[in-house]
Amino acid sequence: MSHLSSADVDETTEAEAPATDEAREEIVAIFTEELGDALLGSHIRPGDDVWLRVSRDAWRTAGIVLRDRAGCRAFEFLSAIDWLPSPFGKSEDSPTDERPEPDTEIVTGYAGGDTRFQVFARALSYHRKLGVTLKVDLPDDDLSIETWLPVFAGVNWHERETHEMFGIDFVGHGHLAPIYLPGEFEGHPLRKDFPLLARIVKPWPGIVDVEPMPEAEGGADDEEASE
């Protein structure tokens, strides 16, 4: 498994993809041609998937390119990722140990990223038989982005959900009412700094049952889960 990369287009495809994937490289070429500098990064896993990162200003244009030029007419989903490491530690941390100093370094995933919040969406092309994931960075001080409603009608509820879960504003949406939670609910649950109060009141007790960890990579091979 390759490590996460934020390299630009050419380096990514050359350094990390010994095998070639023409169909997906064609998608990257289409976006490079249409968006130029607004295409900030891309990542191809040959035979599997392609990730593209575009600039915030070009988000809607990228959507239209995705739909019309790349032929991905079937909308799949739109959501966001909060790349901040959880300040409440990981689930496997023991509740009795002292909580480690929370990690604040933001490491983003495929196709790179500079900021904490990233909106990502995916669409599918029936005739190419592949899907494309688009990502876009949002600056922390202005969590807003153009709506994709003119691109895919189905994005309506997805943007409402993302607004509710992350507090991201979709400019031009017009009806960002809460979709899941009751009106009185405060906070944005899918942000990493949203605490699960039940876990803080009563920490997960399952940690006592977990066997000691095998030594990093070396011990992994001689252990078998099946009989």
Partner: peptide, 9 residues
């Protein structure tokens, strides 16, 4: 869902 934010216990 004992630790969920939206479920009544």
């Amino acid at each position: 869902y004992w630790d969920s934010y939206s479920v009544t216990k």
